[in-house]
Design a protein around this nucleic acid. Sequence first.
DNA 1: CCATTAATTTCAT
DNA 2: ATGAAATTAATGG
Length: 198
Amino acid sequence: MKIDEDLLFKFGAEKKNYKVKEHIFSEGDIAQYYFQIIKGVIKLNHYNDNGREFIHNILSDKQSFGDAFVFSEKHYPMNAITLENSEIIRLPKNRFIDLLKENPEISLELNACFSHQIYYKLKMMQNLASQNPTDRLIGLLDYYKSFQEDCNSFSFQVHLTRQQIADLTGLRVETVIRTLKKMEKEESIKIRNSKIFY
DNA sequence: CCATTAATTTCAT
DNA sequence: ATGAAATTAATGG
């Protein structure tokens, strides 16, 4: 989701700068803001009982996060942590709801975004249930490519490290490396200087 | 350069 | 086939 920044400010949003590795919110906090990235990269993650990290999503410029939680009184089930120094706009949730009431077209657009998110979350879930590492990777790549304009094959560079891909798919980094190589051989992806194109 | 981080390989299970 | 540990490559200051 992307809302015009001036409009957000008009409704009382504030801009905040975060250093790399800072928590924007943490698991257990109550959602009180709509967040949108002006510039930077953040990850939404969770640590399981063994201390292993699972990344729900990695987001960058012009993308929002945590939006789904402002409509309920739920606690966040995950952390939001910056991966780079980032500028982020935040709008208190009641003001955000005012904004939506006065701008029904944005409200509709938000529904479209939720729809997109739910669709891919569901697909990711199905892929994660698969034993086949290739399926999990393809699912992830499709998801990231879905934000991309250009749908030509190999036109999309994946800006994720091997480790991040592993944490997003529940695979080990070695498995990711081995599977990517196999996929390159099968020509479903291209790799140039370790950069992945899909 | 040196230090840090990421990618890949090795090796044991 | 998989993952921990070791090695090698790249990135950044």
